[in-house]
């Protein structure tokens, strides 16, 4: 999927909505770029998607839509599941029924372990200063990070989480992310202090900072 541009604008909108649920209708900033021609946008999106699909199809000589091989450089064959490592098996199973290769149990709690935290976690890893939307999101979700990152249940908010996360982070070297977080925290604190001391000077709630950076 090379539709990074496509998704980023969609994400920005999403971010804005999530961050400012109350202001989103009234805010002047929302209209900075004028009205959106939704039909045009949707047409362009579809065209772009089609273009990407065609490129994919051509590159792999495989029709991903119909799930059928085509003629080309790749010689496709359909292999029975047991002839291939279990890892690939999931592929054609629609992700719905993952056949257990080892005795297993149905474990509804396990999905709470995994998916519960989806975006924050990934955010953590994807924070790099290259996309306009990502840093903002990080700032937005910053408060949730510690417990979201490593706890299976959102309710398990407690000090050990933080400690654990810190350790896990420090023995790895994701400096960029660390940098971001710290910067944001510093900024946060600063604006808090400021609003405390000079109320007139910065009446803007802290959460609005990211908004400016979206632009």
């Amino acid at each position: 999927m090379s539709n990074v541009q496509l998704s980023s604008s969609a994400q920005e909108r999403l971010v804005a909505r999530r961050t400012f649920p109350l202001h989103r209708r009234t805010s002047v900033c929302r209209n900075l770029f004028g009205p959106v021609d939704h039909d045009e946008l949707s047409r362009e999106m579809k065209a772009k998607m089609r273009e990407i699909s065609e490129r994919d199809q051509q590159r792999w000589n495989f029709n991903f839509e119909a799930n059928t091989p085509l003629d080309g450089d790749y010689e496709w064959e359909e292999v029975p599941v047991d002839k291939s490592p279990a890892f690939y098996q999931d592929s054609v199973q629609n992700g719905r029924t993952r056949v257990p290769a080892t005795p297993v149990k149905q474990c509804p709690s396990s999905d709470s372990v995994l998916p519960e935290t989806p975006s924050m976690d990934v955010l953590e890893r994807l924070v790099v200063p290259e996309s306009s939307s990502t840093p903002c999101q990080v700032e937005v979700n910053q408060e949730n990070r510690t417990d979201k990152l490593n706890s299976g249940k959102p309710s398990h908010r407690q000090v050990p989480c933080v400690t654990r996360k810190r350790t896990a982070t420090t023995d790895n070297n994701t400096h960029i992310t660390d940098f971001f977080v710290k910067r944001k925290r510093a900024a946060d604190r600063k604006s808090n202090d400021m609003s405390a001391c000079h109320l007139s000077k910065s009446p803007i709630p802290v959460e609005q900072t990211p908004r400016k950076r979206i632009r």
């Binding site: 495989f62 119909a66 799930n67 496709w76 064959e77 359909e78 291939s84 690939y88 098996q89 592929s91």
Partner: peptide, 15 residues
């Protein structure tokens, strides 16, 4: 290529 069943269960596409 081998024949396909749209999302056939129990097979893997390999090339």
């Amino acid at each position: 290529v081998a024949e396909i069943g749209g999302g056939a269960y129990g097979t893997v596409y390999k090339a």
